[in-house]
Amino acid sequence: MSSHQVLAGFHAVTARLRHAPESIKELYVEASRRDKRMQALIEQAQAAKVRVRPVPAERLDGLAHGTRHQGVVALAQAHALAVDVDEVLDLLEGKEPALLLILDGVTDPHNLGACLRTADAAGVHAVIAPRDRAVGLNTTVQRVACGAADTVPYIMVTNLARTMRRLKERDVWLVGADDQAEAGIHQVDARRPMAWVMGAEGEGMRRLTRETCDELVSIPMRGSVESLNVSVASAVCLYESVRQRRQP
């Protein structure tokens, strides 16, 4: 991953200004836009001592490389979050049970952005994906994630099955979402250290990923659609975990 990144849109930029303003090298705004939302962003940037450069919309289009930018683009250093699964678990040891999300084969940046946004809302400690079949944290992901890419570690690993086995060695229970499974998500004890494992739309989890899971469960559906989008499925599973963990 490059040490620099492009942040496009109000959500991605304001989140970075809130969490790590020192990482922003340049903030470009559309010169002709003077509404309250833009003014609030400029004031936030100035308070954080970030340089603001008004430019034509055409310049923003070029900086954003086709991503919808809403008149706001920032050039920033990649924000340092946890880069290793063991680092995440070490930080949690003795504090709270781990809650992780593993995505096997998610290549759509909109899906990844939505998964990161849900993960942030649910208090997930890290999202894990393989390097060979996954989208990275590109500009579209940053925009759709609405700032969650700056708060939830996204850890890409060389060998997903090996990483999952490492999690098991550290007492993390691996639960795979599979529409053919007999057990349902409400039968999962989500209060323990655990990771939800999701596959890509259509294909689902790869065979080795599925076989490495400790448990497979299905998500009950009352509607007429045949399958759930991976971002929706992850939201259902993560919020079931939150519900259980909040019970006395």
Rank of each mutant, 00 (worst) to 15 (best):
R170S: 10
V13C: 10
H110P: 08
M198T: 06
G176L: 01
E215L: 13
Q142I: 09
G136E: 14
V29T: 13
R133Y: 07
A47W: 14
M1W: 11
T151G: 07
S3L: 13
A145I: 09
S241M: 10
L75E: 03
S32V: 14
L238E: 10
A235S: 08
T14M: 13
V127I: 14
S2R: 12
N111M: 04
H4D: 01
C237H: 03
G147V: 04
C146P: 14
R34T: 13
I102D: 01
R165F: 15
N111A: 09
C213Y: 09
Y154V: 09
L160E: 00
V13F: 13
A8H: 12
V197G: 12
A64V: 04
I219F: 06
K36S: 11
R170G: 09
E201R: 12
V127L: 11
A119T: 00
V127T: 12
M1V: 10
I128C: 01
L41A: 02
M1Q: 06
T107K: 08
L91A: 09
H11L: 15
V52F: 03
A195E: 00
W196A: 07
V225Y: 11
G113I: 01
A45W: 02
W196K: 06
L60D: 01
S241C: 09
A57C: 00
N159F: 07
P153Q: 07
C237V: 08
M164Q: 10
L81I: 09
M198G: 02
K49R: 14
A149Q: 13
A181N: 05
L89H: 02
T67M: 01
G223R: 04
M221A: 11
A121L: 13
R133A: 07
Q44H: 06
L228P: 00
M38Y: 04
L116N: 06
A40H: 14
D178E: 09
V6A: 04
Q77F: 03
R143G: 00
